[in-house]
Amino acid sequence: MRLSELVSNLTPTTYSQLALLIFLGVFIAIAWRHRRLTTAHTEAAALPLADDAAPLARPEVPHE
């Protein structure tokens, strides 16, 4: 069967079902991959708290 024939035989319901399956697959893959807490997760979560490293200098600039 050619692709064009396949597509023309699909109903809107089939598109929706297919999309739901794709989403479910991606969701399960991501959930499975991240099922265990790793050091990488802990490090990543701490990034906002690590962004105020001690400044080297505070050069002064005129007001914009």
Partner: peptide
Amino acid sequence: PKAAEKPVFSYRLSILHFWS
């Protein structure tokens, strides 16, 4: 997290949150 001075509760949940 900056205001609370605590890391986000679950980084793994944030990944699922984002893609979903």
